[in-house]
Amino acid sequence: MTFEPEQLGRSAQELAATLRKLRKQAGLSGDRLAARCNMSQSKVSRIENGKVRPTLVDIERLLTALEAPPALVAEVTALARIAATEWQDARSMRRKGLDKKQLELAGLEASSSHFRFFLLSMLTALLSTPEYIRASLEHIPGDHSRAVAKKLERQDVLYDRRKQFTFLVTEQAARSPFVPPDAMAVQLDRLASLTHLPNLRLGVLPLDTRLPGCPLNTFTVYDERLATVETTTGVMVFRDPRDIRMYLDEFAGCEELALFGEDARDRLAGWAAAFRT
């Protein structure tokens, strides 16, 4: 099934309308459908009005109760997957203001407890020094002082011991010289210091590590409910459990090969020393 990026995240109402239409075609009231699939009538109503995003299990229970034919099940399931995927266009985010995106991320971090970051080509703001953050925004026209401030403010979440963080950092991400050599050395020192936080695991993946598969993008998984994937032109947001599982499996495969603890600190110290010389 193919679709335009602009369709992503806009199919929730279409999905709700389709489920409502199927129920009416089956001649069932909301109460009777709820009883058939062991679901509360209020939840059925919220799903049909687009106020609740149904899970794939919810979809399966509803379609089974409606005795939908296999072709229709496949069509509605595909629609549910599109509805669970969102496209955030980079140009639109810049027009709204990059500080607005930081507020969105802060909210997501506040509502999550376990974070997995795979950093392929550059560091995330949570790990970055102020100089590195400013340099990472230099290619975007405009005044980004508020965005920089919000990025630094978000770093407080790392010290919330109720939350667990795992960062996988490739050598390319750690050593790409976004700032002058002395500042890169300081940035690598910061990475090493963060490995001492009890709720944070930072693993490094040297260039000679043969990664499983072929990771193509930087991505983050929040708990096991949402994954964000960064591309050149924007961000994809996945909520479908099948998509999230693929990123969790890719992360786990790389995590097994990463250097942690003293091994990671030794490697980071060597890279920092190379910048200082």
Rank of each mutant, 00 (worst) to 15 (best):
T2H: 15
E6L: 14
E6M: 12
Q7R: 10
L8P: 01
R10F: 09
S11N: 15
Q13Y: 09
Q13T: 11
L15S: 01
L15W: 00
T18L: 04
L19I: 09
K24S: 15
K24E: 15
G27V: 06
L28K: 05
S29A: 05
D31I: 01
L33Q: 00
A34K: 02
A34N: 05
A35M: 09
A35Y: 08
R36L: 14
R36M: 14
N38T: 13
S40K: 01
Q41W: 02
V44C: 03
V44K: 00
S45F: 00
I47R: 00
N49Y: 07
R53C: 06
V57K: 15
E60Y: 04
V73A: 07
V76G: 02
A78H: 06
R81L: 08
R81Y: 08
I82H: 08
Q88R: 13
Q88W: 14
R94G: 06
R95S: 11
G97Q: 03
D99P: 11
D99I: 08
Q102A: 07
L108F: 11
E109L: 06
S111Y: 10
S112F: 00
S113K: 15
H114V: 07
H114Q: 15
L119M: 12
L119S: 04
S121G: 13
S121A: 12
S121T: 15
M122E: 12
L123M: 10
T124A: 13
S128I: 05
S128A: 15
E131V: 13
E131Q: 09
H139T: 13
P141F: 05
P141T: 01
G142P: 07
G142T: 04
D143W: 05
D143M: 06
H144G: 03
S145E: 10
V148Q: 02
V148F: 03
E153A: 08
E153T: 08
L158P: 01
R162Y: 04
R162A: 11
K163L: 00
V169F: 03
Q172F: 09
R175Q: 12
R175P: 05
P177A: 07
Q187D: 09
L188D: 01
L188F: 04
D189P: 03
A192S: 10
A192W: 00
P198E: 04
P198N: 07
L200V: 13
L200I: 12
L205F: 08
L205G: 05
D208Q: 13
L211S: 04
L211M: 10
C214K: 13
L216H: 10
N217S: 15
N217K: 09
T218Y: 08
T220N: 12
V221E: 01
D223I: 00
L226C: 08
A227Q: 02
T228V: 09
E230F: 07
E230N: 07
T231K: 07
V237D: 04
D240A: 04
R245E: 13
L248Q: 12
E250G: 13
F251M: 05
F251K: 01
A252Q: 14
C254G: 06
E256L: 13
A258L: 06
L259H: 14
L259K: 10
G261H: 07
E262N: 11
D263G: 14
A264E: 11
G270W: 14
A272G: 05
A273C: 10
A273I: 10
F275Y: 11
